[in-house]
Design a protein around this nucleic acid. Structure first.
Lengths: 186, 186
DNA sequence: CGGTATCGATACTTCTAGTAGCGAAACCAG
DNA sequence: CTGGTTTCGCTACTAGAAGTATCGATACCG
């Protein structure tokens, strides 16, 4: 809440740049305090921004976290010579992303909130899951329900591990996950 | 909060029987209102019990839900001629349980809360996951880390589907999950 | 019939999400 | 350099839920 760290305010009407600052503050706060204690107040304070400014840009905490995740994930790198390679590299990519500081906890947190909040579930589904689902459908040539099933398996497994242990999945188990999922393509 | 539904209080010092009543009220309340709106106040009211009585028996909402789930799940029926049959029947059993009214939402809810609450994570891990893990280790002859991985895959997938859609996984996809996991035994 | 443990009800504290209102600062146009 | 517009910061506020404290009442047990 205190802007006191910067004695003189930086020039320019702050418009662009605030999003990135808030996103970074969100991830670091979630990383340090966990999802539950990462209140909007604390996130705003960490970003050097008023809480009202956060709510002027995102309608709810869930929407903020979702936008932060969309920004942090970026587009899926769908690379590989064949479909198996595309899928396995995508799995390793999402596992690595979820393992980055703050991202996994934030992901598990919104997901948790979304269970009880249909509105947030809608946001999470359309803004975060759908882009990857469509890209994967295109790259793998699999039908929608099949890709949704694969997403359930991969993301569900990674989040369950993150939720139960508090730590991201180790590489060895990510390898096992790839081995487990790959035969589903045939 | 109002006991008014029963004009005259039933006789006997209420001690046994209250747990089952509260558990039933918990599941029905979560089923009707979702995890987020299933407050301890409402659960207690639905059980015809004071909120203080609930907190005298369980130290937190998460502990209550976990105890409710432990009671609702009961022991795993580990049946089958071979390991494949044991595992596939266990998967179908847990999928069916999660599909029962209230159970899936309650499970996803505590899991969500556990992400941000190490204490609750401890309760969930020891009271709910460990018994099944140990039983599965014994029945499958697989090492601990392997069984934990399988639990991550199966439970994670089922909860992810439940969380994203609000509905339990359909039988067709449960079949696919069984097909996906079974080869992991070899 | 008295002692004891539990229960019910009310009130309270604390924390967090989200909102309202207002003055101030910064950008832009003329 | 001056006025208009937009965004921002700040304080204060509401509403809802978790969890606690207290006390009178009630039901069991010896």
């Amino acid at each position: 809440m205190a802007r006191a760290t910067t004695p003189t305010r930086p020039p320019g009407r702050p418009r662009s740049g605030v999003d990135a600052t808030v996103f970074a503050a969100t991830l670091s706060t979630v990383h340090e305090l966990g999802y539950g204690r990462a209140t909007v107040d604390r996130i705003a304070a960490a970003a050097g921004v008023a809480k009202t400014t956060v709510y002027r840009r995102w309608p709810s905490k869930g929407a903020l976290i979702t936008a932060c995740l969309v920004d942090a994930f970026g587009p899926v790198p769908l690379e590989g010579a064949d479909r198996e390679e595309v899928l396995s590299s995508a799995i390793r990519w999402i596992a690595a992303k979820i393992g980055e500081p703050g991202i996994g906890a934030a992901f598990a947190g919104v997901f948790t909130d979304a269970v009880a909040d249909p509105g947030l579930r809608q946001i999470l589904s359309t803004q975060l899951q759908d882009p990857y689902r469509i890209a994967l459908q295109d790259a793998l040539g699999e039908p929608q329900n099949r890709v949704l099933f694969l997403i359930d398996v991969v993301v569900g497994t990674l989040l369950h591990r993150m939720g139960m242990t508090g730590e991201p999945m180790v590489d060895e188990d990510v390898d096992a996950l790839v081995e487990l999922v790959l035969p589903a393509l045939r």
